[in-house]
Amino acid sequence: MVEEKTINEIAKEWEDDKRKYVKKSTIAAYQLLIQNHISPYFGELNKVCEEDVQKFVLKKLDDGLSEKTIKDIIIVLKMILKFGVKLGYLEYVQIDVKFPTNHENKALDVLTKQDQKKIMDYLRDNFTFRNLGIFICLSTGMRIGEICGLRWCDVDVAEGVIKVRHTLQRIYIIEGEQKHTELLLDTPKTSNSIRDIPMSTELLKMIRSISKVVNENYYVISNDINPIEPRTYRNYYKKLCKKLDVPELKFHGLRHSFATRCIESKADYKTVSVLLGHSNISTTLNLYVHPNKEQKKKCINKMLRSLSAK
């Protein structure tokens, strides 16, 4: 016989169990999704069916939530439900939700070549440690947390590589009724995110001279023992965009711009995927590789020519 518990009660037990196996930042992310989305909609229920979840998906789409965020929520919900079934609180129910196919794929935020050159020229001619971080991002595709968590000991001038070993983020902690935020220096997003990225000749030239006089324990963009957190650095970047009169893309758009320039330069997709620290090449392909009409035409003509070749 199934011992009934509400989804809120099951979620609390699931969190306590999950805490033993995942990073603090991961638990914090789960808690936010539960508090903001799962608990208000499903929390007081003691069973969840496919129809409930499908209605939830459509409501969240209507509310303007992105498909990716909704999928992340559903992943967490399914883990909680599976945990409930395992402990005998719920009966197993197959849940397969559908997303409408009539919505347009949102274009990536990417700098034009002209705007990217404009920014990089300015950064080169107006050196500060904060400006260096933006230049590094445009030259390596590093995430903002990786840039903020980068220390001089991670910059290997002799080998000409930047060693991505940490990420800095402010996480939201929920401990019973107590809620607070905490700045956390942690290992990168996934094991693939731990990587060595070669520095361009230009970046290496910028760094080589100052690397001899900086403290290796200092953070690069603050040149201090204390880091600059991502939110503060985003604000600095926004002000720079306004100053240079370039489109105010999200900071993550710098990473997209790096990847796009790599693809445009005919770099092989696997190499780009490794540089970005993606878990698999399909992520890179889905995000950045979208053949246009001319490329498709060339592909078909090339195939037909190979058939007619003697």
Rank of each mutant, 00 (worst) to 15 (best):
R165K: 13
R130A: 13
Y122T: 01
K98W: 10
T112H: 06
K163T: 01
I144L: 10
P100A: 09
V110N: 10
D96R: 12
C137P: 00
L168F: 05
N102D: 15
G160P: 05
N102R: 11
M120Y: 01
T140Y: 09
R143S: 02
F127D: 09
R165I: 02
Q114C: 00
K113S: 13
S139T: 12
G141I: 09
C153E: 15
D154I: 03
F127G: 07
V157Q: 05
D115M: 02
I171T: 09
K163D: 11
F135M: 10
T112D: 09
T101G: 11
M142F: 06
A107N: 14
Q114M: 04
F127Q: 10
I136D: 07
T140C: 08
I119D: 00
D125F: 04
F135Q: 03
L132F: 13
R165Q: 14
G145Q: 01
D121P: 02
I95D: 05
R170P: 06
D154P: 03
G141K: 08
R143V: 05
Q114V: 12
R124C: 02
E104M: 13
V157M: 15
G149T: 03
H166F: 09
F129A: 02
Y122A: 01
L108G: 01
V164G: 03
C153M: 14
L111R: 03
I171A: 01
I95V: 03
M120V: 03
C153Y: 15
Q116Y: 13
E159N: 15
D96Y: 11
L168T: 06
L138A: 06
N105D: 12
I134G: 06
H103G: 05
I147L: 13
V97Y: 10
N126L: 08
G133V: 05
G133L: 10
C137W: 00
T167I: 02
D154N: 15
R143W: 09
G160E: 05
N126S: 06
D125E: 15
K98Q: 12
D115P: 07
D125K: 14
L108T: 08
T167Q: 15
I144P: 04
V161P: 03
C148Q: 07
G145L: 02
R124H: 10
G160M: 08
Q114H: 10
D121C: 01
C148G: 08
L138F: 07
K118L: 02
G145Y: 07
Q169V: 08
E146G: 10
E159W: 05
L138Y: 01
S139F: 08
K118M: 00
I147K: 03
A158M: 14
T128V: 10
N105M: 12
K113I: 13
T101S: 14
N105V: 14
D125Y: 11
T101A: 13
L132G: 10
C137N: 00
G141F: 08
R143E: 07
T140A: 02
F129K: 08
V161I: 14
Y122F: 15
C148H: 09
Y172F: 14
K117L: 00
V97S: 02
T128F: 11
Y122G: 01
I171E: 02
V157E: 05
E159A: 15
G149Q: 09
L168G: 06
G160N: 04
G160C: 09
L108H: 04
A158H: 07
D96E: 14
D156M: 09
K113T: 11
R124Y: 12
Q116S: 14
V164N: 10
K118Y: 02
N105I: 12
